[in-house]
Design a protein around this nucleic acid. Structure first.
Lengths: 228, 228
DNA sequence: TACGTTAGCGTATGTTATACGCAAGTCGCG
DNA sequence: CGCGACTTGCGTATAACATACGCTAACGTA
Protein backbone atom coordinates (compact mmCIF):
# COMPACT_ATOMS: atom_id res chain seq x y z
CA UNK A 1 0.00 0.00 0.00
CA UNK A 2 1.92 3.04 -1.12
CA UNK A 3 0.77 5.75 1.24
CA UNK A 4 -0.94 8.26 -0.94
CA UNK A 5 0.16 11.26 1.00
CA UNK A 6 0.81 14.31 -1.04
CA UNK A 7 2.80 16.22 1.52
CA UNK A 8 4.82 17.70 -1.23
CA UNK A 9 6.84 20.73 -1.85
CA UNK A 10 7.49 22.48 1.44
CA UNK A 11 8.29 25.51 -0.71
CA UNK A 12 4.90 27.07 -0.43
CA UNK A 13 4.90 29.62 2.34
CA UNK A 14 3.59 32.88 1.03
CA UNK A 15 6.69 35.05 1.39
CA UNK A 16 8.30 34.01 -1.83
CA UNK A 17 11.95 33.54 -1.30
CA UNK A 18 14.67 32.87 -3.77
CA UNK A 19 16.48 29.70 -2.84
CA UNK A 20 19.88 30.69 -1.69
CA UNK A 21 21.91 28.13 -3.46
CA UNK A 22 22.53 24.98 -5.29
CA UNK A 23 20.05 22.48 -3.90
CA UNK A 24 16.50 22.30 -5.17
CA UNK A 25 13.75 19.79 -5.59
CA UNK A 26 14.44 19.61 -9.30
CA UNK A 27 18.11 19.00 -8.87
CA UNK A 28 17.35 16.25 -6.40
CA UNK A 29 14.89 14.54 -8.69
CA UNK A 30 17.29 14.81 -11.56
CA UNK A 31 20.10 13.27 -9.56
CA UNK A 32 17.82 10.52 -8.33
CA UNK A 33 16.88 9.70 -11.88
CA UNK A 34 20.51 9.58 -12.92
CA UNK A 35 21.28 7.33 -10.00
CA UNK A 36 18.35 5.15 -10.89
CA UNK A 37 19.54 4.78 -14.45
CA UNK A 38 23.11 4.10 -13.55
CA UNK A 39 22.85 1.80 -10.59
CA UNK A 40 19.27 0.65 -10.36
CA UNK A 41 16.46 1.16 -7.93
CA UNK A 42 18.02 -0.15 -4.78
CA UNK A 43 20.95 2.20 -5.28
CA UNK A 44 18.66 5.14 -4.80
CA UNK A 45 19.03 5.72 -1.09
CA UNK A 46 18.96 9.02 0.67
CA UNK A 47 22.63 8.79 1.71
CA UNK A 48 23.90 7.86 -1.74
CA UNK A 49 21.78 10.50 -3.35
CA UNK A 50 23.12 13.11 -0.94
CA UNK A 51 26.66 12.01 -1.59
CA UNK A 52 26.15 12.40 -5.30
CA UNK A 53 24.91 15.94 -4.76
CA UNK A 54 27.73 16.59 -2.30
CA UNK A 55 25.28 17.47 0.37
CA UNK A 56 24.38 16.19 3.79
CA UNK A 57 21.73 13.52 3.84
CA UNK A 58 19.24 15.51 5.82
CA UNK A 59 19.45 18.44 3.48
CA UNK A 60 17.37 16.51 1.03
CA UNK A 61 14.46 16.53 3.40
CA UNK A 62 14.11 20.26 3.01
CA UNK A 63 12.94 19.74 -0.53
CA UNK A 64 11.36 16.35 -0.34
CA UNK A 65 8.87 15.20 2.25
CA UNK A 66 9.74 11.58 2.13
CA UNK A 67 11.54 9.02 0.16
CA UNK A 68 8.15 8.13 -1.17
CA UNK A 69 7.61 11.68 -2.22
CA UNK A 70 10.93 11.66 -4.01
CA UNK A 71 10.15 8.48 -5.85
CA UNK A 72 6.81 9.86 -6.87
CA UNK A 73 8.53 12.89 -8.25
CA UNK A 74 10.90 10.75 -10.27
CA UNK A 75 8.02 8.82 -11.79
CA UNK A 76 6.25 12.04 -12.58
CA UNK A 77 9.26 13.49 -14.26
CA UNK A 78 9.72 10.48 -16.49
CA UNK A 79 6.09 10.17 -17.48
CA UNK A 80 5.50 13.85 -18.01
CA UNK A 81 7.26 13.61 -21.34
CA UNK A 82 4.57 11.36 -22.73
CA UNK A 83 1.62 12.70 -24.66
CA UNK A 84 -1.16 11.72 -26.97
CA UNK A 85 0.17 12.49 -30.45
CA UNK A 86 -1.65 14.82 -32.78
CA UNK A 87 -3.27 13.21 -35.74
CA UNK A 88 -6.31 12.67 -37.81
CA UNK A 89 -9.43 13.06 -35.71
CA UNK A 90 -10.94 9.83 -36.87
CA UNK A 91 -7.76 7.84 -36.62
CA UNK A 92 -8.38 6.98 -32.99
CA UNK A 93 -6.48 3.74 -33.28
CA UNK A 94 -3.37 5.45 -34.52
CA UNK A 95 -3.46 8.11 -31.87
CA UNK A 96 -4.17 5.83 -28.98
CA UNK A 97 -1.60 3.31 -30.09
CA UNK A 98 0.84 6.14 -30.56
CA UNK A 99 0.25 7.20 -27.00
CA UNK A 100 0.74 3.72 -25.66
CA UNK A 101 3.94 3.33 -27.60
CA UNK A 102 5.18 6.60 -26.20
CA UNK A 103 4.39 5.36 -22.74
CA UNK A 104 6.42 2.23 -23.29
CA UNK A 105 9.28 4.19 -24.81
CA UNK A 106 9.42 6.49 -21.83
CA UNK A 107 9.60 3.52 -19.53
CA UNK A 108 12.22 1.78 -21.62
CA UNK A 109 14.43 4.81 -21.34
CA UNK A 110 14.62 4.13 -17.61
CA UNK A 111 14.49 0.40 -17.02
CA UNK A 112 14.82 0.61 -13.28
CA UNK A 113 11.57 2.52 -13.23
CA UNK A 114 9.82 -0.81 -13.19
CA UNK A 115 9.85 -1.14 -9.44
CA UNK A 116 8.40 2.29 -9.08
CA UNK A 117 5.65 1.79 -11.59
CA UNK A 118 4.60 -1.53 -10.25
CA UNK A 119 4.26 -0.04 -6.79
CA UNK A 120 2.28 2.95 -7.88
CA UNK A 121 0.55 1.56 -10.88
CA UNK A 122 0.11 4.36 -13.32
CA UNK A 123 -1.42 6.53 -10.64
CA UNK A 124 1.11 9.18 -11.43
CA UNK A 125 0.27 12.81 -12.03
CA UNK A 126 0.90 13.24 -15.72
CA UNK A 127 -0.84 10.03 -16.63
CA UNK A 128 -4.16 11.49 -15.55
CA UNK A 129 -3.76 14.32 -18.03
CA UNK A 130 -2.91 11.85 -20.71
CA UNK A 131 -5.91 9.71 -19.94
CA UNK A 132 -8.09 12.75 -20.11
CA UNK A 133 -6.82 13.30 -23.63
CA UNK A 134 -7.21 9.67 -24.58
CA UNK A 135 -10.74 9.72 -23.32
CA UNK A 136 -11.53 12.68 -25.53
CA UNK A 137 -10.12 10.89 -28.54
CA UNK A 138 -12.22 7.83 -27.86
CA UNK A 139 -15.38 9.80 -27.29
CA UNK A 140 -14.83 11.58 -30.56
CA UNK A 141 -14.45 8.21 -32.23
CA UNK A 142 -17.90 7.16 -31.14
CA UNK A 143 -17.25 5.32 -27.90
CA UNK A 144 -19.69 5.82 -25.07
CA UNK A 145 -18.32 7.17 -21.83
CA UNK A 146 -18.30 3.76 -20.28
CA UNK A 147 -17.04 2.14 -23.46
CA UNK A 148 -14.18 4.59 -23.59
CA UNK A 149 -13.23 3.86 -20.01
CA UNK A 150 -13.39 0.13 -20.50
CA UNK A 151 -11.38 0.43 -23.65
CA UNK A 152 -8.50 2.51 -22.46
CA UNK A 153 -8.39 0.70 -19.18
CA UNK A 154 -8.03 -2.57 -21.03
CA UNK A 155 -5.31 -1.19 -23.23
CA UNK A 156 -3.54 0.37 -20.32
CA UNK A 157 -3.65 -2.89 -18.44
CA UNK A 158 -1.95 -4.63 -21.30
CA UNK A 159 0.70 -1.98 -21.72
CA UNK A 160 1.30 -1.76 -18.00
CA UNK A 161 1.70 -5.50 -17.74
CA UNK A 162 4.04 -5.57 -20.68
CA UNK A 163 6.19 -2.79 -19.32
CA UNK A 164 6.46 -4.11 -15.81
CA UNK A 165 7.32 -7.49 -17.19
CA UNK A 166 9.90 -6.44 -19.69
CA UNK A 167 11.65 -3.65 -17.87
CA UNK A 168 13.55 -5.77 -15.38
CA UNK A 169 14.82 -7.80 -18.28
CA UNK A 170 16.19 -4.88 -20.24
CA UNK A 171 19.77 -4.07 -19.60
CA UNK A 172 20.88 -2.33 -22.73
CA UNK A 173 19.31 -0.19 -25.36
CA UNK A 174 15.68 -0.72 -26.30
CA UNK A 175 16.39 -2.57 -29.51
CA UNK A 176 19.30 -4.63 -28.28
CA UNK A 177 19.44 -7.05 -25.42
CA UNK A 178 16.19 -7.79 -23.72
CA UNK A 179 16.55 -11.29 -22.55
CA UNK A 180 19.13 -12.16 -19.92
CA UNK A 181 17.96 -13.27 -16.52
CA UNK A 182 14.71 -14.41 -18.05
CA UNK A 183 16.65 -16.37 -20.62
CA UNK A 184 18.76 -17.93 -17.97
CA UNK A 185 15.68 -19.14 -16.19
CA UNK A 186 14.41 -20.59 -19.42
CA UNK A 187 17.66 -22.31 -20.23
CA UNK A 188 17.60 -24.03 -16.91
CA UNK A 189 14.20 -25.54 -17.47
CA UNK A 190 14.44 -29.29 -17.36
CA UNK A 191 13.86 -30.53 -20.93
CA UNK A 192 12.00 -33.59 -19.72
CA UNK A 193 9.64 -31.73 -17.43
CA UNK A 194 9.10 -28.85 -19.81
CA UNK A 195 9.54 -30.19 -23.32
CA UNK A 196 7.67 -27.46 -25.17
CA UNK A 197 8.93 -24.58 -23.12
CA UNK A 198 12.44 -25.88 -23.39
CA UNK A 199 12.20 -26.29 -27.13
CA UNK A 200 10.74 -22.83 -27.44
CA UNK A 201 13.09 -21.07 -25.12
CA UNK A 202 14.49 -19.16 -28.06
CA UNK A 203 11.07 -17.78 -28.90
CA UNK A 204 10.24 -17.12 -25.29
CA UNK A 205 13.46 -15.25 -24.84
CA UNK A 206 12.45 -12.68 -27.38
CA UNK A 207 8.90 -12.24 -26.22
CA UNK A 208 9.83 -9.06 -24.48
CA UNK A 209 10.30 -7.26 -27.74
CA UNK A 210 8.70 -4.50 -29.71
CA UNK A 211 7.37 -7.10 -32.06
CA UNK A 212 5.49 -8.91 -29.32
CA UNK A 213 4.32 -5.62 -27.92
CA UNK A 214 2.81 -4.67 -31.23
CA UNK A 215 1.36 -8.12 -31.72
CA UNK A 216 -0.74 -7.99 -28.61
CA UNK A 217 -1.53 -4.35 -29.01
CA UNK A 218 -2.83 -4.69 -32.54
CA UNK A 219 -4.98 -7.65 -31.68
CA UNK A 220 -6.36 -5.86 -28.69
CA UNK A 221 -7.09 -2.63 -30.50
CA UNK A 222 -8.78 -4.38 -33.36
CA UNK A 223 -11.12 -6.14 -30.97
CA UNK A 224 -12.09 -2.93 -29.24
CA UNK A 225 -13.89 -1.01 -31.93
CA UNK A 226 -16.60 1.47 -31.10
CA UNK A 227 -20.20 0.29 -31.30
CA UNK A 228 -21.30 2.61 -34.11
CA UNK B 1 17.09 -7.09 -10.42
CA UNK B 2 16.05 -9.92 -8.18
CA UNK B 3 19.16 -12.00 -7.93
CA UNK B 4 18.26 -15.27 -9.52
CA UNK B 5 20.29 -17.38 -7.20
CA UNK B 6 18.76 -20.66 -6.34
CA UNK B 7 20.79 -21.38 -3.29
CA UNK B 8 17.84 -23.06 -1.79
CA UNK B 9 17.16 -25.76 0.63
CA UNK B 10 20.28 -26.34 2.65
CA UNK B 11 18.63 -29.61 3.60
CA UNK B 12 20.39 -31.62 0.95
CA UNK B 13 23.48 -33.14 2.46
CA UNK B 14 23.41 -36.83 1.82
CA UNK B 15 23.19 -38.12 5.40
CA UNK B 16 19.45 -37.79 5.76
CA UNK B 17 18.58 -36.60 9.17
CA UNK B 18 15.26 -36.14 10.84
CA UNK B 19 14.82 -32.54 11.79
CA UNK B 20 14.85 -32.45 15.53
CA UNK B 21 11.99 -30.16 16.09
CA UNK B 22 9.42 -27.64 15.19
CA UNK B 23 11.02 -25.36 12.65
CA UNK B 24 11.07 -26.20 8.97
CA UNK B 25 11.11 -24.45 5.67
CA UNK B 26 7.45 -25.18 5.17
CA UNK B 27 6.46 -23.80 8.51
CA UNK B 28 8.42 -20.68 7.81
CA UNK B 29 6.84 -20.15 4.42
CA UNK B 30 3.42 -20.74 5.89
CA UNK B 31 3.99 -18.21 8.62
CA UNK B 32 5.36 -15.71 6.16
CA UNK B 33 2.26 -16.08 4.05
CA UNK B 34 0.03 -15.58 7.06
CA UNK B 35 2.00 -12.52 8.03
CA UNK B 36 1.74 -11.24 4.50
CA UNK B 37 -2.01 -11.64 4.47
CA UNK B 38 -2.52 -10.10 7.84
CA UNK B 39 -0.18 -7.18 7.85
CA UNK B 40 1.02 -6.68 4.31
CA UNK B 41 4.30 -7.02 2.56
CA UNK B 42 6.40 -4.63 4.56
CA UNK B 43 5.41 -6.44 7.74
CA UNK B 44 7.22 -9.52 6.52
CA UNK B 45 10.61 -8.99 8.11
CA UNK B 46 12.91 -11.61 9.45
CA UNK B 47 12.56 -10.43 13.05
CA UNK B 48 8.79 -10.28 12.98
CA UNK B 49 8.55 -13.61 11.26
CA UNK B 50 10.82 -15.14 13.86
CA UNK B 51 8.78 -13.66 16.64
CA UNK B 52 5.63 -15.14 15.21
CA UNK B 53 7.27 -18.55 15.15
CA UNK B 54 8.67 -17.99 18.62
CA UNK B 55 12.14 -18.53 17.37
CA UNK B 56 15.32 -16.50 17.20
CA UNK B 57 15.78 -14.47 14.08
CA UNK B 58 18.85 -16.26 12.89
CA UNK B 59 17.21 -19.62 13.18
CA UNK B 60 15.31 -18.87 10.05
CA UNK B 61 18.49 -18.80 8.07
CA UNK B 62 18.99 -22.49 8.64
CA UNK B 63 16.04 -23.17 6.38
CA UNK B 64 16.08 -20.21 4.08
CA UNK B 65 19.07 -18.88 2.21
CA UNK B 66 17.96 -15.35 2.02
CA UNK B 67 15.01 -13.12 2.43
CA UNK B 68 14.79 -13.27 -1.31
CA UNK B 69 14.71 -17.01 -1.16
CA UNK B 70 11.93 -16.86 1.36
CA UNK B 71 9.87 -14.50 -0.72
CA UNK B 72 10.35 -16.72 -3.75
CA UNK B 73 9.09 -19.63 -1.75
CA UNK B 74 6.00 -17.73 -0.71
CA UNK B 75 5.20 -16.86 -4.30
CA UNK B 76 5.71 -20.45 -5.32
CA UNK B 77 3.43 -21.72 -2.63
CA UNK B 78 0.63 -19.39 -3.65
CA UNK B 79 0.88 -20.05 -7.35
CA UNK B 80 1.31 -23.76 -7.07
CA UNK B 81 -2.39 -24.11 -6.43
CA UNK B 82 -3.24 -22.88 -9.90
CA UNK B 83 -3.75 -25.23 -12.82
CA UNK B 84 -5.15 -25.46 -16.29
CA UNK B 85 -8.65 -26.87 -15.83
CA UNK B 86 -9.73 -30.04 -17.53
CA UNK B 87 -12.22 -29.64 -20.29
CA UNK B 88 -13.22 -30.28 -23.82
CA UNK B 89 -10.16 -30.69 -26.00
CA UNK B 90 -11.35 -28.21 -28.59
CA UNK B 91 -12.57 -25.66 -26.10
CA UNK B 92 -9.20 -23.99 -25.87
CA UNK B 93 -10.74 -20.64 -25.08
CA UNK B 94 -12.58 -22.00 -22.10
CA UNK B 95 -9.60 -23.80 -20.73
CA UNK B 96 -7.13 -21.01 -21.18
CA UNK B 97 -9.52 -18.44 -19.82
CA UNK B 98 -10.20 -20.77 -16.93
CA UNK B 99 -6.53 -20.92 -16.20
CA UNK B 100 -6.13 -17.19 -16.31
CA UNK B 101 -9.08 -16.74 -14.00
CA UNK B 102 -7.57 -19.20 -11.59
CA UNK B 103 -4.36 -17.25 -11.68
CA UNK B 104 -6.16 -14.06 -10.80
CA UNK B 105 -8.13 -15.76 -8.07
CA UNK B 106 -4.99 -17.10 -6.49
CA UNK B 107 -3.52 -13.64 -6.46
CA UNK B 108 -6.68 -12.08 -5.10
CA UNK B 109 -6.57 -14.46 -2.19
CA UNK B 110 -3.33 -12.79 -1.13
CA UNK B 111 -3.49 -9.12 -2.07
CA UNK B 112 -0.13 -8.26 -0.65
CA UNK B 113 1.40 -10.64 -3.12
CA UNK B 114 1.37 -7.83 -5.59
CA UNK B 115 4.74 -6.49 -4.59
CA UNK B 116 6.26 -9.90 -4.92
CA UNK B 117 4.79 -10.61 -8.30
CA UNK B 118 5.72 -7.30 -9.76
CA UNK B 119 9.30 -7.86 -8.71
CA UNK B 120 9.56 -11.36 -10.05
CA UNK B 121 7.10 -11.18 -12.85
CA UNK B 122 5.55 -14.57 -13.22
CA UNK B 123 8.97 -16.19 -13.32
CA UNK B 124 7.91 -18.42 -10.51
CA UNK B 125 8.36 -22.14 -10.47
CA UNK B 126 4.85 -23.46 -10.82
CA UNK B 127 3.95 -21.01 -13.56
CA UNK B 128 6.34 -22.74 -15.91
CA UNK B 129 4.50 -25.99 -15.48
CA UNK B 130 1.25 -24.23 -16.10
CA UNK B 131 2.53 -22.59 -19.24
CA UNK B 132 3.72 -25.92 -20.48
CA UNK B 133 0.15 -27.14 -20.15
CA UNK B 134 -1.30 -24.04 -21.74
CA UNK B 135 1.04 -24.43 -24.64
CA UNK B 136 -0.16 -27.97 -25.18
CA UNK B 137 -3.75 -26.82 -25.21
CA UNK B 138 -3.02 -24.16 -27.77
CA UNK B 139 -1.05 -26.48 -30.00
CA UNK B 140 -3.89 -28.92 -29.92
CA UNK B 141 -6.22 -26.12 -30.94
CA UNK B 142 -4.26 -25.50 -34.11
CA UNK B 143 -1.86 -22.78 -33.10
CA UNK B 144 1.67 -22.97 -34.41
CA UNK B 145 4.46 -23.10 -31.87
CA UNK B 146 5.21 -19.45 -32.35
CA UNK B 147 1.54 -18.55 -32.50
CA UNK B 148 0.95 -20.32 -29.23
CA UNK B 149 3.79 -18.50 -27.57
CA UNK B 150 2.67 -15.13 -28.85
CA UNK B 151 -0.85 -15.88 -27.80
CA UNK B 152 -0.32 -16.96 -24.25
CA UNK B 153 2.31 -14.35 -23.73
CA UNK B 154 -0.14 -11.70 -24.78
CA UNK B 155 -2.81 -13.07 -22.52
CA UNK B 156 -0.42 -13.41 -19.65
CA UNK B 157 0.70 -9.85 -20.11
CA UNK B 158 -2.84 -8.66 -19.80
CA UNK B 159 -3.59 -10.75 -16.75
CA UNK B 160 -0.34 -9.85 -15.11
CA UNK B 161 -0.96 -6.16 -15.66
CA UNK B 162 -4.47 -6.46 -14.35
CA UNK B 163 -3.40 -8.28 -11.24
CA UNK B 164 -0.52 -6.05 -10.36
CA UNK B 165 -2.74 -3.07 -10.86
CA UNK B 166 -5.72 -4.25 -8.90
CA UNK B 167 -4.09 -6.05 -6.02
CA UNK B 168 -2.85 -3.02 -4.14
CA UNK B 169 -6.35 -1.65 -4.34
CA UNK B 170 -8.07 -4.66 -2.84
CA UNK B 171 -8.57 -4.53 0.86
CA UNK B 172 -11.53 -6.76 1.44
CA UNK B 173 -13.01 -9.79 -0.17
CA UNK B 174 -12.72 -10.27 -3.92
CA UNK B 175 -16.25 -9.21 -4.70
CA UNK B 176 -16.51 -6.37 -2.24
CA UNK B 177 -14.36 -3.34 -1.93
CA UNK B 178 -11.84 -2.84 -4.63
CA UNK B 179 -11.47 0.86 -4.91
CA UNK B 180 -10.10 2.89 -2.03
CA UNK B 181 -6.79 4.65 -2.45
CA UNK B 182 -7.32 4.69 -6.18
CA UNK B 183 -10.73 6.23 -5.65
CA UNK B 184 -9.30 8.84 -3.37
CA UNK B 185 -6.86 9.84 -6.04
CA UNK B 186 -9.70 10.09 -8.51
CA UNK B 187 -11.86 12.13 -6.21
CA UNK B 188 -9.12 14.62 -5.79
CA UNK B 189 -8.77 15.24 -9.49
CA UNK B 190 -9.47 18.84 -10.25
CA UNK B 191 -12.80 18.97 -12.12
CA UNK B 192 -11.64 21.81 -14.31
CA UNK B 193 -8.38 20.22 -15.34
CA UNK B 194 -9.85 16.75 -15.73
CA UNK B 195 -13.50 17.16 -16.65
CA UNK B 196 -14.06 13.73 -18.17
CA UNK B 197 -12.03 11.80 -15.66
CA UNK B 198 -13.70 13.63 -12.84
CA UNK B 199 -17.15 12.96 -14.23
CA UNK B 200 -16.28 9.33 -14.74
CA UNK B 201 -14.61 8.73 -11.45
CA UNK B 202 -17.42 6.42 -10.46
CA UNK B 203 -16.77 4.22 -13.48
CA UNK B 204 -13.04 4.42 -13.07
CA UNK B 205 -13.35 3.40 -9.47
CA UNK B 206 -14.84 0.10 -10.43
CA UNK B 207 -12.47 -0.71 -13.24
CA UNK B 208 -10.58 -3.05 -11.00
CA UNK B 209 -13.41 -5.53 -11.03
CA UNK B 210 -14.16 -8.97 -12.30
CA UNK B 211 -16.37 -7.40 -14.89
CA UNK B 212 -13.58 -5.33 -16.33
CA UNK B 213 -11.25 -8.29 -16.12
CA UNK B 214 -13.60 -10.36 -18.21
CA UNK B 215 -14.24 -7.52 -20.59
CA UNK B 216 -10.64 -7.20 -21.62
CA UNK B 217 -10.04 -10.90 -21.49
CA UNK B 218 -12.91 -11.80 -23.77
CA UNK B 219 -11.97 -9.18 -26.30
CA UNK B 220 -8.41 -10.33 -26.26
CA UNK B 221 -9.19 -14.00 -26.58
CA UNK B 222 -11.62 -13.46 -29.40
CA UNK B 223 -8.97 -11.61 -31.36
CA UNK B 224 -6.43 -14.36 -30.93
CA UNK B 225 -7.94 -17.24 -32.82
CA UNK B 226 -5.78 -19.88 -34.43
CA UNK B 227 -4.94 -19.50 -38.11
CA UNK B 228 -6.63 -22.64 -39.35
C1' DT C 1 29.74 -44.51 24.51
C1' DA C 2 31.84 -41.08 21.74
C1' DC C 3 31.71 -38.32 17.64
C1' DG C 4 30.23 -35.84 13.83
C1' DT C 5 26.43 -33.26 12.27
C1' DT C 6 23.09 -29.84 12.57
C1' DA C 7 19.27 -26.83 14.71
C1' DG C 8 18.68 -22.89 17.19
C1' DC C 9 20.42 -18.78 18.64
C1' DG C 10 23.23 -14.45 20.62
C1' DT C 11 25.98 -10.97 19.30
C1' DA C 12 27.79 -7.70 16.23
C1' DT C 13 28.00 -5.00 11.88
C1' DG C 14 26.69 -2.12 8.38
C1' DT C 15 22.92 0.18 6.13
C1' DT C 16 18.67 2.29 5.92
C1' DA C 17 14.94 6.17 6.75
C1' DT C 18 14.10 9.95 9.30
C1' DA C 19 13.03 13.00 13.79
C1' DC C 20 14.97 17.02 15.95
C1' DG C 21 17.32 21.09 16.60
C1' DC C 22 21.27 24.28 15.70
C1' DA C 23 23.69 27.79 12.87
C1' DA C 24 24.37 30.68 9.33
C1' DG C 25 22.82 33.01 5.33
C1' DT C 26 19.30 35.90 2.95
C1' DC C 27 15.43 38.81 2.15
C1' DG C 28 12.14 42.36 3.06
C1' DC C 29 10.97 46.05 5.71
C1' DG C 30 11.83 49.91 8.49
C1' DC D 1 21.59 50.85 6.33
C1' DG D 2 20.31 47.49 9.70
C1' DC D 3 17.48 44.19 11.95
C1' DG D 4 14.71 40.25 12.54
C1' DA D 5 12.19 36.47 10.61
C1' DC D 6 12.43 32.78 7.76
C1' DT D 7 14.79 29.45 5.45
C1' DT D 8 18.49 26.31 4.12
C1' DG D 9 21.90 23.09 5.06
C1' DC D 10 23.48 19.92 8.21
C1' DG D 11 25.09 17.04 12.51
C1' DT D 12 23.54 13.96 15.66
C1' DA D 13 20.67 10.34 17.21
C1' DT D 14 17.31 6.56 16.87
C1' DA D 15 15.09 2.54 15.54
C1' DA D 16 14.55 -1.07 12.25
C1' DC D 17 16.45 -4.15 9.07
C1' DA D 18 19.31 -8.08 6.75
C1' DT D 19 22.74 -10.89 7.74
C1' DA D 20 27.90 -12.69 8.91
C1' DC D 21 29.96 -15.42 12.43
C1' DG D 22 30.53 -18.61 15.82
C1' DC D 23 28.85 -21.00 19.99
C1' DT D 24 26.04 -24.68 22.27
C1' DA D 25 23.49 -28.47 22.78
C1' DA D 26 20.79 -32.22 21.03
C1' DC D 27 20.51 -36.05 18.05
C1' DG D 28 21.62 -40.29 15.22
C1' DT D 29 25.15 -43.44 14.23
C1' DA D 30 29.14 -46.24 14.67
Amino acid sequence: MPSNRRVRSAASSRSRRVPRNTLSRDRIVEAALALLDEDGFEAVTMPSLAKRLEVGTMSLYRHVADKDDLVDAVAERVLSGVAVPDGDADDWEGRVVGYLRALRDAALAHPALSRILSDRGLTVGPVFEQLEAVHAVLRAAGFSDLGAVRTFYTLLTYVFGFIVWELPRVHQQPAVAYTAAWNDALDQLDPTDYPSLHALRRQLGTTASSEQFEYGLQHLVSSLRPPG
